[in-house]
Design a protein around this nucleic acid. Structure first.
Length: 747
DNA sequence: CAGCCTCGAGTTCC
DNA sequence: CTCGAGGCTG
């Protein structure tokens, strides 16, 4: 059925539809609870419920007393719907020392190009879960968890049960996304746990887990019984500004009926920020809820706007964290894990101990020499090489998540303890494990011969950002890899699973937990992925140094699998020459005395390249490859090696044949006049700093480059511009002054 | 050529 | 979430 757009509904139509929706949704609820077959699918149910909310948002006065929106005891669902955040929910960068705070402030001044005093807002960082609440015309229509920042889960039904969250707002902007933290107080947490244990239910390790567990209940009637609370502190999409400063926005939240944290303060200097931090630290135990630090934000919203964002964090805010909780325990053993790239990672096996409310039994030891000093959490680190089995060690959870070893008590070291012999052979396959000059990690050289590497690589292939095949996760991969009947050794094996041999399939279906349906589901999920984004395909290959972003850049540049393969084949001789030149240079570096060293290196490189006799088209294919933004020689060589390796190449080719469609990346949106254009800034910029100019241009889809070439579209020249401006004019490239540029991008 | 930023790879527990 | 390292900027 095709709905009329909510915007064009007449009042009479709206009234009629709200009645119909109330009836249909009520029936669906009853059917669900009566354990009958639901008459409509979950997706359809969600869609209708959303439409109901949208109509109510447009005609608030028509909202029915039996409105489905208010039916908080909504039917439990199979899972949560996904919600794409219209404005990404970011995380914050962290400060651990006072020094980090001063650097944060200094960095902002540098970025803005002035040293004027800056005003900040400081508030406690609540240890809960962030939540985004979307209000349309004053009505709460959606609540979503943070998820990965871009996409979260729809927990609207649960959010509606939280007292601190208003269902309707008076005098709010037409569109308002309020963001804040859901948490549970110490008192409520203790009461919940004693209630749970009386009922024989499971108890929670800490208030945050309790809050998370409660918010993610599939049955919102359970959430309703859990005493969750909410502090508002931020926002996403808006139809109109909330004020000119962070503080005004917070006051606005308060006026709209949200709880805002009473310890929110304006601070005028780094010193004041740190004073407020100390004061909150003192009150920490008496607050009645968990906090894990203090958040500082630039108060002026116009400045926040200018400062903008790094890839995952705003430049205008930072979280000043309290020192992590620690605990002492015994180091029982050190195991070695082998990763997808062959990296040997030592892992500490510990006598289980509670750290910050969670029982920890493993901790990462990173690599061979986890050295003396302080790590970025400001925690002292014992000399890595000297950590011994039997030691008494201090554990903390970095970022309150990853367990690490902070210290070792040498006075308690048993006499029998000996230094840990770091293996030089892979514990999984016995191949040599070597450490490249200057590298921190030791790697197994076995390649795909090593079962650990082979399995990890396959796990990577099916991981969430890669092929993401439903029903084929890490566990299934381990099972199938060792399967005597239907082994999966390469990615292509996944796609031939169904057709390999009929008898084998029958055997699979008879296995534990594998019925007719689950097998059919798996095959359907696999078939669905025969059509795949080019960038996902490239990422899934698991080529060293080529991650999600690198894969996207490559896909954007080459546009097709065939073009990528052709370019890599063509560039191979140049890639080899490049490596040889690197090696020659390296050797020379070792020989040469400091004097005149530089002058002598270039000829050596050139000679090495010349000796390879690189065809011109190879050289240009290679230059094209490493000219891709973000792709340098290391990535180029890694790619080239992977595609030139016979075994790997055969696996890639076989995989390609199993796929039916490789989807080229979408062209970048051409909404702004500069999107897709390459821009060069030169000379002095007077209205913004260079970093700022670059960030803004990129936000509009432009690519910012440092040097002028044929590919350059626009040169922005300030006073004092020299050769670049001249070159641009020679090449006939558009040259703008700073005002011309600003006019262009604000158009 | 140093310093910054971003990305990749590795990790824990629920 | 953190560390190390690759790539780019100044």
């Amino acid at each position: 059925m095709v709905d009329i757009s909510v915007d064009t509904l007449t009042e009479a139509q709206a009234q009629e539809e709200l009645l119909a929706l109330a009836i249909v949704l009520d029936q669906a609820n009853r059917a669900y609870h009566g354990a009958d077959d639901p008459e409509i699918s979950d997706a359809e149910y969600d869609r209708l419920k959303k439409r109901n909310a949208q109509i109510e948002a447009r005609f608030p006065h028509l909202k029915r007393s039996d409105s489905p929106t208010d039916q908080v005891g909504a039917a439990p669902t199979d899972g949560f719907g996904k919600v794409r955040h219209s404005v990404r929910m970011l995380s914050l960068s962290n400060a651990f020392e006072d020094q980090d705070v001063k650097e944060f402030v200094a960095g902002i001044q540098r970025y803005l190009g002035h040293s004027d005093a800056l005003a900040f807002v400081a508030e406690p960082k609540i240890d809960g879960l962030s939540l985004s609440l979307r209000y349309e015309n004053g009505v709460l229509v959606q609540a979503a968890t943070r998820g990965d920042g871009a996409e979260g889960e729809d927990v609207t039904a649960n959010a509606l049960t939280i007292q601190d969250i208003p269902h309707q707002l008076q005098g709010a902007p037409d569109l308002l996304e309020v963001r804040g933290e859901v948490y549970m107080s110490h008192q409520d947490f203790a009461a919940l746990n004693s209630r749970q244990s009386e009922r024989g239910g499971k108890t929670f390790a800490n208030p945050r887990n309790a809050a998370a567990g409660s918010l993610r209940q599939l049955d919102s009637r359970i959430t309703q019984e859990r005493p969750l609370r909410f502090f508002a502190y931020s926002w996403g999409a808006l139809s109109e500004p909330l004020g000119e400063t962070q503080m005004q926005a917070i006051d606005r939240f308060k006026a709209l009926g949200f709880q805002v944290n009473p310890l929110t303060r304006a601070c005028a200097s780094p010193q004041e920020l740190i004073e407020h931090y100390r004061s909150i630290e003192q009150q920490r135990a008496d607050l009645g809820y968990d906090i894990d630090g203090v958040v500082y934000k630039v108060n002026d919203l116009a400045l926040q706007d200018r400062l903008g964002f790094r890839s995952t964090t705003p430049r205008w805010a930072i979280a000043h964290k309290f020192p992590a909780e620690t605990a002492w325990t015994h180091l029982e053993a050190i195991d070695i894990q082998v990763g997808r790239t062959g990296a040997l990672s030592p892992v500490a096996r510990l006598t289980p101990v509670t750290v910050g409310g969670v029982v920890v039994s493993n901790a990462t030891l990173h690599n061979e020499d986890y050295i003396i000093g302080r790590d970025s959490n400001g925690m002292p680190i014992r000399e890595g090489r000297d950590l011994r089995v039997g030691d008494w060690v201090q554990v903390y959870r970095a970022g309150d998540v990853i367990p690490k070893i902070a210290d070792v008590d040498l006075s308690k070291r048993p006499d029998t303890a000996t230094p840990f012999p770091f293996p030089t052979q892979c514990p999984e396959c016995g191949s040599d494990a070597v450490r490249e000059e200057g590298d921190a990690v030791r790697r197994c050289t076995g390649g795909l011969i090593c079962p650990a590497q082979a399995i990890e690589k396959l796990k990577h292939f099916v991981s969430r950002s890669a092929f993401d095949i439903e029903g084929l996760g890490a566990k299934q991969i381990e099972m199938f890899h060792a399967d005597p009947v239907l082994p999966i050794k390469t990615p292509a094996d996944i796609f031939s699973l169904q057709t390999r041999d009929a008898a084998a399939i029958a055997k699979l279906r008879n296995r534990d937990g594998w019925g007719e349906t689950s097998a059919a589901n798996l095959f359907a999920a696999i078939d669905q992925r025969r059509s795949i984004d080019l960038s996902r395909l490239i990422f899934s290959l698991g080529i060293r140094h080529v991650g999600e972003v690198g894969a996207r850049d490559l896909a954007g540049h080459y546009q097709s699998w065939e073009a990528l393969v052709e370019a890599l084949d063509l560039a191979r001789p140049a890639a080899l020459a490049h490596r040889k030149a690197d090696q020659a240079e390296q050797a020379e570096r070792l020989n040469a005395l400091a004097e005149h060293r530089r002058a002598r290196l270039k000829p050596i490189r050139d000679a090495a390249i010349a000796s390879y006799d690189v065809p011109a088209d190879a050289a240009s294919a290679w230059a094209d490859l490493i000219g891709v933004d973000g792709i340098g020689a290391v990535l180029g060589l890694s790619l080239s090696d992977a595609f030139a390796n016979k075994t790997e190449r055969a696996a890639f080719d076989e995989l390609r044949l199993a796929l039916t469609r490789i989807i080229p990346p979408e062209a970048p949106s051409s909404e702004s006049p500069v999107s897709g254009k390459t821009v060069v800034f030169t000379g002095t910029l007077e209205k913004m700093t260079r970093a700022e100019a670059k960030a803004r241009a990129e936000a509009l889809g432009a690519k910012v480059s440092g040097s002028v070439s044929k590919k350059t579209d626009i040169v922005v020249a300030g006073p004092g511009a020299g050769s670049k401006e001249k070159k641009a004019k020679d090449l006939g490239i558009t040259v703008l002054d700073e005002d011309g540029w600003l006019a262009l991008i604000s158009a």
